[in-house]
Design a binder for these strands. Structure first.
Lengths: 127, 127
DNA sequence: CCGCATCCATTTTGATACTG
DNA sequence: CAGTATCAAAATGGATGCGG
């Protein structure tokens, strides 16, 4: 049955985190361990709260490790785990897909909006 | 530079975010054209409003076509476009990833919660 | 420097009722 | 049956101040 191959609502792992920051952060950590402040600087306008929350969720799910250095001032390093590397591949798939199809999607949007949101195909009289 | 390979906040095409309902619906349409009510029945608890909204967004972006039959009662068929098929492949990547790693992620969560949210690694006196 | 707590604005989602 | 409208509820995002 085809439905067995459909995603189900309770597939919690799928919704890694319904926010725009998760994949951004994962891709930032692709090559190197980064400090909290470094991620914040590169992530482009994320608030401290959202960064903390997102990183904590990623840690909780086993995608990143957190290393705390009890120095003054404090220092916290984040790094992808093996599982995190796999999530990174997924994020990359999305990134590549977006790059490849952005123009086409934007064209489709313009056409749809220009048509006033009317469907492309409309049958008037089929029994 | 590694940052050029990071996802940026303004990557609008990423607007098709791994959101809950979007990928569910796309995977439901993998093999066949489905009516509105059929999707609703199989999607598992989606509200009529969310289904309408999600489908309209998918149509606007060019991922599905909408065929309206002006019969009584009305009938509307949804089908993946070529671009939608590519999105389906992406959705499948997520589905497979979730299926493969669900157990591991759930274990990580339990461990994290059991430890009271403490990080796995903590250095007390470095430098 | 890191990040938690609190308060508040915005966004998203759901429940319900109604229309063609 | 498909879709809209309205209202209520929940999740999310940001700002600020405090603490280790």
């Amino acid at each position: 049955m085809s439905l067995s191959q459909s995603i189900q609502p309770d597939d919690d792992v799928l919704v890694v985190r319904p926010g725009k920051w998760t994949l951004i952060i994962v891709t930032l950590l692709r090559a190197e361990t980064l400090r909290f402040s470094e991620i914040k600087r590169h992530a482009g306008g994320i608030s401290q709260k959202m960064l903390t929350t997102t990183l904590r969720d990623l840690e909780r799910d086993g995608f990143v490790t957190r290393k705390i250095f009890a120095t003054i001032p404090p220092r916290v390093d984040y790094e992808l785990t093996q599982l995190g590397q796999e999530l990174l591949e997924l994020a990359d798939s999305w990134r590549v897909f977006a790059a490849r199809n952005r123009v086409q999607v934007e064209a489709a949007r313009r056409q749809f909006d220009a048509a006033g949101g009317e469907p492309v195909i409309r049958f008037i009289r089929p029994a």
